Amino acid sequence: MFISTAYAQAAGGADGAGALMQFAPLILIFVVFYFLLIRPQQKKQKEHKAMLEAIRRGDKIVTAGGLIGTVAKVVGDDELSVEIAEGVKVKVARGMVSTVLSKTEPAKNDAKEEEKEEETKKD
């Protein structure tokens, strides 16, 4: 009387277009996430890695801990000696450098310029 009879839904055909339309929102969400989150993060990581590889002696840096100092010596591929105060040097892992505040000229260019100056002085 008050309860109606429940009938099972008729089984639809398993066609390819119906299955694709079910996954379309998920695919769309993944594409949006890729362009708004994943791709910019990868680009930022690539730029940071290039910045770390380009650190030279004399560059003014900020570490991840917030220390500001000047690179006194590049000890190895993964280590820097940073002067944080006059006469105070600390060793810092290269990966812990967050930003480079000021860059110095490449050492190779300076050496070449000095050689040119010496040659011009001799003449």
Score class of each variant (00 low, 15 high):
Ser4Thr: 05
Ala93Gly: 11
Val74Gln: 00
Lys112Val: 13
Gly12Gln: 13
Gly65Ala: 15
Leu80Ile: 06
Lys46Tyr: 11
Val82Asp: 00
Pro106Glu: 08
Gly12Cys: 03
Phe30Gln: 08
Lys108Phe: 06
Arg56Ala: 06
Ala111Arg: 15
Val31Gln: 05
Lys91Ala: 07
Gln41Ala: 11
Lys121Thr: 07
Lys112Arg: 14
Asp59Arg: 01
Leu67Thr: 07
Ile3Gln: 09
Ile29Tyr: 04
Thr99Asp: 13
Leu26Arg: 11
Phe30Trp: 12
Ile29Ala: 15
Glu113Pro: 00
Pro106Thr: 09
Val82Phe: 03
Glu114Ser: 02
Leu20Lys: 03
Val88Tyr: 05
Val97Cys: 10
Val32Asn: 03
Leu67Tyr: 04
Glu113Lys: 14
Arg57Pro: 00
Val100Glu: 01
Asp77Thr: 11
Tyr7Asn: 12
Val32Cys: 12
Glu105Thr: 10
Val90Ser: 06
Leu26Thr: 09
Gly66Trp: 06
Ala8Ser: 14
Lys121Gly: 02
Asp77Gly: 14
Ala8Pro: 07
Leu67Asn: 10
Ala64Lys: 11
Thr104Leu: 00
Ile27Gln: 12
Lys122Cys: 00
Met51Cys: 09
Phe30Lys: 08
Lys43Ala: 13
Glu118Arg: 11
Gly69Val: 03
Lys112His: 11
Val31Tyr: 02
Thr99Met: 11
Leu80His: 03
Met1Gly: 07
Leu26Gly: 14
Lys108Tyr: 04
Leu36Cys: 11
Lys46Met: 12
Val82Ser: 02
Leu26Asp: 10
Leu67Glu: 10
Lys103Cys: 00
Pro25Thr: 07
Val62Tyr: 01
Ser98Cys: 09
Ala10Gln: 14
Leu101Met: 13
Lys43His: 06
Lys108Ala: 15
Lys121Ser: 08
Phe30Ile: 15
Thr5Arg: 08
Val82Leu: 03
Phe2Leu: 07
Asp59Cys: 03
Ile38Ala: 04
Pro25Val: 05
Val75Gly: 00
Leu20Ala: 14
Phe23His: 09
Asn109Phe: 04
Val100Cys: 02
Asn109His: 04
Glu119Cys: 01
His48Asp: 12
Phe2Asn: 10
Lys43Pro: 00
Val92Leu: 06
Ile3Arg: 11
Lys60Pro: 00
Lys43Trp: 05
His48Phe: 10
Gly69Cys: 05
Glu115Lys: 12
Glu113Ser: 07
Thr120Ala: 13
Ile68Lys: 11
His48Ala: 14
Ala11Gly: 08
Leu26Val: 08
Arg94Ser: 05
Val32Met: 14
Ala6Ile: 10
Thr120Glu: 13
Gly16Asp: 05
Phe33Asp: 08
Thr99Ala: 12
Val97His: 01
Leu101Arg: 09
Leu80Phe: 08
Lys116Thr: 07
Lys121Pro: 00
Lys91Tyr: 11
Gln41Asp: 07
Thr104Ile: 06
Leu20Asp: 05
Ser4Pro: 07
Val62Arg: 07
Phe30His: 06
Gly87Met: 04
Phe2Trp: 02
